[in-house]
Design a binder for these strands. Structure first.
Length: 790
RNA sequence: GCUCGGAUGGCGAAAUGGGUAGACGCGAGGGACUUAAAAUCCCUUUCCCCGUAAAAGGGAGUGCCGGUUCGAGUCCGGCUCCGAGCACCA
């Protein structure tokens, strides 16, 4: 039965606060946003990166990103898909811990408060989030499975413990992440950061480098994100070459005839063996100085230092004896920790050679052919690379090697606020992983969680916690006291969401098969490398273990842009932060959402201008009024009808491209056309517009949909379709150019021929006056323009 | 230094299989309604020249310099500036 046109006689003026409160309650009551996880016919997983629940509350940048995802999700639902839009909290980590230390509140107390506040703000934003499947990484029912992930990788042989250099602040007595070291100084106290060697747990992500790189070609991700990952993985093909007992890595084997010395990293194990007695003291003192330099300043200082070891090795190509130096411009972590230096063709080597008066020998001519290179002279660089490696390889002096700059992932943190690493050390059994049945290893509630001078986790002060029986032999043993990196929490959370509620498994096999991989993922490009790479790695490993059936977690990924205000990124110190609550109070969540989407392209972000929201609010007010005042019936006017169908087409094309700003503009245009016709709009003219607006302004759309007589949610209605035949026009405006300049427009039938168009154009005096002589050439683009050349 | 983005009115921005540059919105100016204000509604709004009661005309214009083309914001070559990321990776 056709619904009656006016179920409610008088519609009150549009009051966003009232409408939004009503519909949030209605959605909760009806379970509108709860996905049918078990029985969905056409599952669609629309994910956004979960936030860190800060004490400051939700940031506009969060709202911008979440709204962008929400619009896409709601649109997909109106296409008839069963959409799952979950949201949780990334609440472990150094950020929470430092903040807790600063304000003197325990993180275990602070985080639930922050989450409650986030939840309140997120709900006000009108997101279609299925709150029945939320999660927090700090919940033991979540992190027991984070520990489980660790154990799976351990089982697969991808977890190792080794000593590694870390940044150490002697004042704060803590390990610092690289991001916390500014110009070699601690960001908090300003003291000079030192380098320390500590035992750390590593995930062998580098053994997946080739696959992580190759799979990128199969992903529907923005190119900038893929490029960032390619650069980070940093594949480089070259060769390892023996200079007597020293193996170097190079990508420029073609320049070997110009290699005039060899350089070892200061911590290279062969340094001792290659140091002569007379140089020993100098070498030792250099090594000590180098060890004390922190990682950051070592990697940013350009000026080259170094010491001659006094010994020489043979250049395997020339047979010449060349000196061996040590310098910290050669990094132990990359390649073999040793290089052949070719100062003529490498900037860094040249700088070093100049500093220490080492010889410089050119071996490549400007046209990329080799000179002074023995039998290889005259070859191109490209050909020589292969020929030289092949020739050296034949003598057992070289082999082709591919190197990656991707390092193994250090996952241990000497901190408190994270999941304890599930390992036990037993004097008899050695390193024993905690059995899965004993998970979670609970993070104990301790008050003295401030890091100290020891360089080990605060948990190590609590023997009542770390002293446990060995899971294997039952004798007293001790727990690992480090916790794992926050990035491990977020490297698998997308697997958990659909299975939240089932505490017997990390993710249910059938549900996972139905819902994953994630269909659409939206987040910030600041995670282009770390989070997105770690998630891909963990997914690949779980796939290899047969635990899931796909190796890439995110089929499609789009990065959203940044919101700036007054020309700068929002920050408390600049005082340009926008509080979403205030805007929603004043304008309503629908206007706020729509404005955020309108202020610029979603993937680029934009400038938040305080008054900009008024235009969007006006549009929503007009929509409200046009539905309120509508008359029954269909379009009264061919122009309006055409515009309506063009708008349905445009908005339907723009939303999947995340071109939200132009979708909003198109709806505004339609509204303007509707208003111009100077009559009361009809039901059929406004009803589809309410549906188009729904993803942007969901509360308002629901309210208007109800006023139009519908009982069910507008989000269970089908997206309106357009009739292509209505878009076709009989008469079009043809642009006429003369010598490339626009000289006029003529109204012609859509199927006009070139000749007919030309003669029509010549009849227009404003155009004809520019055509003094017969045309030399005429270009005719059907339906677009006529270009006359004289 | 390397990589990736970007540069269009007073402002946020539209438009790329080359085809009317500035849609949509903000701001600004003017007007209607009102005792008044707010709200609402209407008009104008890239720059320059000529000119008018109002108009009609003409020229220039998408960071800069060149090129291809009947035609370039869009394609090609060479720059400048801004932003982000990586940064001694051999």
């Amino acid at each position: 039965m056709e619904p009656v046109d006016r179920p409610s006689e008088i519609v009150a003026p549009y009051d966003p606060g009232q409408v939004e409160t009503k519909w949030r309650a209605r959605w909760a009551e009806r379970g509108t946003n709860v996905a049918n996880i078990a029985n969905a016919a056409r599952p669609y997983y629309a994910l956004m990166m979960f936030p860190y629940p800060s004490a400051e509350g939700l940031h506009v940048g969060n709202m911008f990103a979440f709204t962008g995802n929400d619009i896409f999700a709601r649109f997909q639902r109106m296409q008839g898909l069963d959409v799952f839009e979950p949201l949780g909290y990334d609440a472990f980590g150094i950020h929470s811990e430092n903040y807790a230390l600063k304000v003197g509140v325990h993180p275990a107390e602070m985080i639930p408060r922050n989450i409650a506040n986030f939840r309140r703000q997120l709900e006000r934003g009108g997101l279609m989030v299925d709150w029945s499947r939320s999660l927090s990484t700090t919940d033991p029912e979540y992190y027991r499975w984070t520990q489980w992930v660790f154990l799976q990788l351990y089982k697969k042989g991808l977890v190792h413990k080794k000593a590694a250099a870390v940044n150490w602040c002697p004042t704060d007595k803590t390990v610092l992440a690289n991001e916390q070291v500014i110009n070699g100084e601690c960001e908090r106290c300003g003291s000079k950061v030192e380098q320390r060697f500590l035992e750390q747990w590593f995930f062998a992500i580098s053994s997946y480098a080739e696959r992580l790189l190759n799979n990128l070609d199969t992903l529907d991700w923005s190119e900038t994100t893929k490029t960032a990952q390619r650069n980070w993985i940093g594949k480089s093909e070259g060769a390892e070459i023996w200079f007597d007992g020293i193996k170097v890595f190079t990508t420029r084997a073609d320049t070997i005839y110009g290699a005039t010395y060899v350089v070892l990293a200061p911590e290279h194990p062969l340094v001792d063996a290659h140091t002569t007695e007379s140089q020993r003291a100098a070498v030792e003192s250099y090594r000590e100085r180098a060890a004390r330099r922190d990682l950051v300043s070592r990697k940013t200082t350009k000026e080259k230092t170094g010491v001659d070891t006094g010994s020489t090795v043979t250049n395997p190509a020339t047979g010449e004896k060349i000196p061996v130096w040590i310098s910290d411009y050669v990094l132990m972590e990359y390649g073999t920790g040793a290089i052949m230096a070719v100062p003529a063709h490498d900037e860094r080597d040249l700088e070093f050679a100049h500093g220490f008066e080492l010889p410089v020998k050119r071996v490549v001519h400007e046209d990329d052919t080799l000179i002074e290179s023995g039998e290889f002279t005259g070859m191109t660089v490209h050909a020589a690379k292969h020929a030289i490696v092949a020739s050296l390889a034949a003598r057992g002096k070289a082999s082709p090697v591919t190197n990656f700059r991707l390092h193994d992932w250090c996952i241990s943190r000497q901190r408190y606020w994270g999941p304890p690493i599930p390992i036990v050390y037993c004097d008899d059994c050695g390193v024993v992983p905690v059995p899965e049945k004993d998970l979670p290893v609970l993070l104990p509630m301790i008050d003295d969680f401030k890091p100290d001078d020891s360089g080990i986790s605060p948990l190590a002060r609590h023997d009542e916690w770390y002293r446990v029986p060995c899971p294997t032999c039952g004798r007293m043993a001790r727990r690992e006291t480090d916790v794992s990196d926050t990035f491990l929490d977020s490297a698998w959370y997308f697997l958990r969401y659909p299975s939240v509620g089932d505490d017997t498994v990390p993710f249910d096999a059938a549900i996972t098969k139905k819902w994953l991989p994630v269909d659409s993922y939206i987040g910030g490009n600041e995670h282009a490398v770390l989070h997105l790479l770690y998630s891909r790695f963990v997914t690949m490993v779980l796939c290899d273990m047969g635990l899931i059936g796909f190796e890439e977690p995110f089929t499609k990924f789009r990065a959203h842009g940044l919101i700036i205000r007054e020309g700068a990124k929002m920050s408390k110190s600049k005082g340009n932060v926008v509080n979403p609550d205030e805007y929603i109070d004043t304008w309503g969540a629908d206007a706020f959402r729509t404005y955020l989407m309108f202020l610029g392209p979603f993937e680029e972000g934009g400038d938040f201008r305080d008054k900009g929201i008024s235009g969007v609010k006006r549009f929503l007010d007009r929509l409200w009024a046009s539905v309120r005042d509508r008359v029954a019936g269909g379009p009264a006017d061919r122009e309006v009808e055409r515009k309506l169908h063009a708008t349905i087409k445009k908005v339907g094309e723009d939303i999947p491209r995340l071109s939200y700003n132009t979708a909003v503009a198109a709806m505004m245009e339609y509204m303007n056309v509707l208003r111009k016709s100077d009559r009361v709009p009809s039901r059929a003219e406004v009803e589809p517009l309410v549906q188009l607006v729904a993803p942007f302004a969901p509360h308002l759309a629901e309210e208007l949909w109800e006023q139009l007589g519908h009982d069910a949610s507008i989000f269970d209605s089908r997206w309106p379709s357009f009739d292509p035949s209505l878009l076709a026009q009989d008469e079009i405006e043809l642009v006429v150019q003369v010598n490339g300049k626009m000289r006029g427009k003529i109204s012609v039938p859509v199927d006009v021929t070139q000749d007919a168009a030309l003669s029509l154009a010549m009849r227009d005096p404003a155009i004809a006056k520019f055509v003094a002589s017969p045309p030399r050439k005429v270009v005719f683009v059907r339906g677009r323009l006529l270009s006359v050349v004289v």
